[in-house]
Design a binder for these strands. Structure first.
Lengths: 344, 344
DNA sequence: ACCGATCGGTAAAACGAATTACCCCGGGGG
DNA sequence: CCCCCGGGGTAATTCGTTTTACCGATCGGT
């Protein structure tokens, strides 16, 4: 086994392959970088053959030093381990990076501001070609001025300083889609089991919910809103509370899929069936949504697409073409947890 | 906003800071790298001051080129977006990397062998100081010979080729801990809702389960095993089946926390209370376990620690001191979903 | 007064590719 | 016959560090 980093037979360099076919390193470089308009097809082929034969691979550190580009995207986030956010977002970033022969360099900041600054500095020292910031729960973040040195995009986060571009889910439309769905099914008593009170997403979803009610000519005051915290237990408790209300709601709009899961358990314990007795709608569309029994109707947050979009623009050099804020739509995905209300 | 990568005032180099205090670049390098035994304290301080004043930061690409070390750890995994595995593992890797002034460079392979090879090649081209492979479900993987060029550790995966080191959860002991826990509570009819049949983890957990039964002088044949697939719906269906068995089990040992969640829903619909009527044990200890109502007793897989351990050894250069396989224990974490069986 | 050690530094050579500025040769036009 | 041009390359420089010599003083000892 290797003792230290990169031991063993030294890798052939561009010079070695040049020597092998009797041309200069320049020629090899030209061929490999596709600037071969000045190189004859014959030479070109011989170089390519030698590259293959010697198993030549470029030294990325050298390329990075000389060219200033490292084929690397810096990714800074609150907490990589948190679901359902991080996974799809980094997948999206990763996939387009990979298509561009680039890789993700990531830093977890635990929301610590000094760590954020350190992360940005480190990433810039490493000559990343772009920077993507992502927050777990949508929120405003503050970034060091340093980020101006590199194309930067925020995902699920925004900032008032500077002219940075942000990509966000359209939570308002998502909340509205959820109500409209149950309204269309004929529900007239709807409860909203909201997530953490002061979160940006919570408020936006709630506004969408209220606007949906209003648009249907209904009075939001007739439809209770319970405030929780996005966790299963919170969904459980809120559902218990909601179902003990005077005229019982026939539809539960949950702050996220976790809360919906809690609601499932609560409803089952109350002897209520989903969706026959009560319809349940989640939010996020995390993998578990499709696995719940019955499968959960929910609103999908396009984290993967948000990641892709962010990466595409940083690599494409088109960050500036983006508006200050881009909202991606959150479609409702109808599954088996919603149906017309009982007795209809 | 920045047009291209790293535009604006050019960064000061080691030479600039040297010039600024009237010493050579060598001196600056020596000071910065801590090799200052040959440098007088006075000069040392002047250099440090200049570094601060000019805001000098080293160019990592240049350092990487010259030294062959890049302060970078390559991380290759099946699928970054899958829970509950990836998050904690990469957190562990990331945290020790960060402590070492290093960063994670990651690649998602989607289990595609050619992609694995490409990832290894790319990472080695980038001169990573170490490589960590991780599989979502524990399994054997096949690695290109190339990995010998760099200290490599497998996490939650193993291989028969070469002499690579692997870090794995002790699933056998975990499975056994689960049975022993319910046995100690006095349960006599236990059902095992197993995960995907041919998975390594499934088998190991099952063996632990059986051995626990045997050790207690019980006959495994008296305790049914149901085979599923680690998803919520599977837990739901298996729990339904299990509870319709002749003498009803009083304890359900689930393949993972997702299945336990499904079991919760099924039990609630059957009008059975947890833990009064039936005890439930999960596996994994993902975040949701603590949030379930009642909070789920489960077996914890130390993914975070596995990540830390892997990183520590690759950075410490102590990979070879590791045995071929290191098993980390999976402790039972007792919460509220287990209790003595009814009527006891 | 001369000889070796230190001490405190420095100049120069890597590291491997990208890039700039030429250079040589053959052929076509005048 | 001479000139110029363009095709096909190449030598040399550069990127910013690390590292390996080596060097000029000062100093203690005899």
């Amino acid at each position: 086994m290797a003792k230290g980093p990169n031991v063993g037979t030294p890798r052939p360099t561009i010079l070695d392959v040049g020597r092998h076919v009797g041309v200069s390193a320049t020629t090899v470089s030209l061929v490999l970088s596709g600037q071969d308009n000045k190189i004859s097809p014959a030479t070109r082929q011989r170089v390519l053959d030698a590259v293959n034969e010697l198993g030549y691979r470029p030294n990325r550190a050298a390329q990075g030093l000389r060219s200033g580009r490292t084929q690397t995207l810096g990714f800074i986030t609150d907490e990589i381990a948190v679901q359902p956010f991080s996974g799809p977002t980094v997948s999206g970033l990763h996939d387009v990076a990979w298509e561009q022969h680039s890789l993700l360099l990531m830093v977890n900041t635990t929301r610590n501001p000094s760590r954020i600054r350190a992360a940005v500095e480190d990433l810039i020292d490493r000559q990343v070609d772009g920077l993507v910031f992502a927050a777990i729960g949508t929120r405003e973040i503050s970034l060091p001025d340093l980020v101006r040195k590199v194309p930067t995009v925020l995902v699920n986060a925004f900032t008032s300083e500077g002219d940075l571009r942000a990509i966000l889910p359209d939570e308002h439309a998502g909340g509205r889609a959820a109500v409209e769905h149950v309204l269309a099914l004929g529900h007239e008593r709807i409860a909203h089991l909201a997530g953490r009170e002061n979160a940006w997403a919570t408020k936006a979803r709630l506004r969408g919910y209220v606007d949906g009610l209003l648009a249907a000519g209904l009075d939001p005051a007739d439809h209770p809103v319970f405030s929780g915290n996005y966790r299963i237990d919170s969904g459980y408790e809120l559902a218990m509370r909601a179902m003990s209300a005077k005229p019982r709601p026939t539809a539960l709009l949950c702050g996220n899929d976790q809360m919906a899961t809690g609601a499932y358990i609560a409803l089952a314990r109350l002897g209520l069936r989903v969706p026959e007795d009560v319809s349940v709608v989640g939010y996020d569309d995390e993998p578990l949504a499709a696995d719940l029994r019955p499968a959960l109707t929910t609103v999908r947050i396009p984290f993967y697409e948000m990641g892709r979009m962010a990466a595409q623009h940083t690599f494409g050099g088109t960050v500036e073409d983006l508006p200050a804020m881009t909202y991606l739509s959150c479609p409702l995905v109808a599954r088996a947890s919603t149906a017309p209300p009982p007795g209809q």
